[in-house]
Design a protein around this nucleic acid. Structure first.
Lengths: 194, 194
DNA sequence: ACAACCATGTAAGTAGTTACATGATTTA
DNA sequence: TAAATCATGTAACTACTTACATGGTTGT
């Protein structure tokens, strides 16, 4: 059986709250968006699939505008979600194009990849600040329910990921500066590996 | 213009050493494999594309078996690789299905996701040990060339990633055990956030 | 001559992205 | 009544995966 992550991610979001496609699309980026992304086109396609499987039902939104439809999870959908969540799967090597560019730089010489690392460093700092703010807002009191703890753990994974790339970027920039410096003069600075 | 990461990853691997498709496929997993994966089917397809672009040329392997062809990067390929490596691109939120399953567990109750975290913890430990071994073998002397430093940085990113998931997994398992414990009795253990 | 393996591929399907189309409601 | 924006979709494409096919070489 294939992985089918996206349909189950949507099922989860709909268990948390029944929504229309566009509402889902907006909520998706803010919550699950830390570790998965989907465009609205994909979401509409998958919603049709969920309904065809009998996992959700949809009704035209009452007293609402246009063609809006609200999707609601059915018991069969909850069962399916529980089944899927218990499945085991190996962690996939995450694709990272920066690492490919690094390797290309190693192979063919200076290409300016350092500039991109600086750009990304800023982005990771911004995201970290955002996540810390969410943590302060939603997970600082003694909320202690199982659900609350798990959601905090997911956010924590996001925080740790951003922090890791910040640490790595700073080491990388320092190493690249040093390598460039040694080309001209001044070799022998104290450099320690992390 | 699309990202086109895979063709450029292959170009990089071929700059490092001219190879046949199957050799590439094997080398790929060991080096670039930390941050990208590709099946041999994909690789053959992309090799045909690289040749069609005039970035590589291939010759029937001399004194070799069967239909084996060896691919070699042309000057235009090097130029293209340098151009691509200097491009800027935002870090993509890495897709992580475990985080989806966590969120599903938060939404519909206990599903046994903890068992999978334990399984993954072992896998991350194994990978970390492997990477540390590579580090010891290939990057422990004072190799100090720019190329050597960059390749070490890529490996370092792999090491830091594994370490991060080990740290996270241990926190997560502890939190899940606590949440389960508090359901029955014994609430109030000293728990600190990292 | 047969098994094991080296080497390259085709076909079909799943997943994700980009560009564009369409109509309905609200706001200026 | 025009612009903005809400809401849902289609079409075409790129990227990746899984299953299978085919022929050549080496070892027994």
């Amino acid at each position: 059986m294939p992985a089918m992550s996206l349909p189950h991610a949507l099922l989860t979001a709909l268990v948390e709250r029944s929504s229309s496609g566009l509402e889902l699309s907006a909520r998706f980026d803010k919550s699950i968006g830390l570790f998965w992304h989907a465009t609205h086109q994909q979401i509409y396609r998958e919603l049709a699939y969920l309904e065809q499987q009998g996992w959700v039902e949809s009704v035209a939104a009452p007293a609402a505008r246009g063609r809006k439809r609200v999707y609601r999870v059915l018991p069969a959908g909850r069962r399916e979600l529980r089944r899927w969540a218990g499945e085991a799967e190996d962690p996939k090597p995450s694709r990272n194009d920066l690492m490919l560019r690094m390797r290309a730089e190693a192979a063919v010489g200076k290409t300016g990849v350092g500039g991109d690392i600086e750009r990304r460093l800023k982005i990771h700092h911004e995201r970290l600040a955002q996540y810390r703010e969410i943590e302060r807002r939603d997970f600082s009191g003694p909320g202690r329910t199982r659900e609350n703890r798990i959601q905090h753990l997911i956010l924590l994974a996001g925080i740790m990921t951003q922090q890791m790339w910040i640490d790595w970027s700073e080491i990388a920039l320092q190493q690249l500066r040093e390598a460039d410096g040694e080309d001209s003069r001044d070799s022998g600075n104290g450099v320690d590996r992390p």
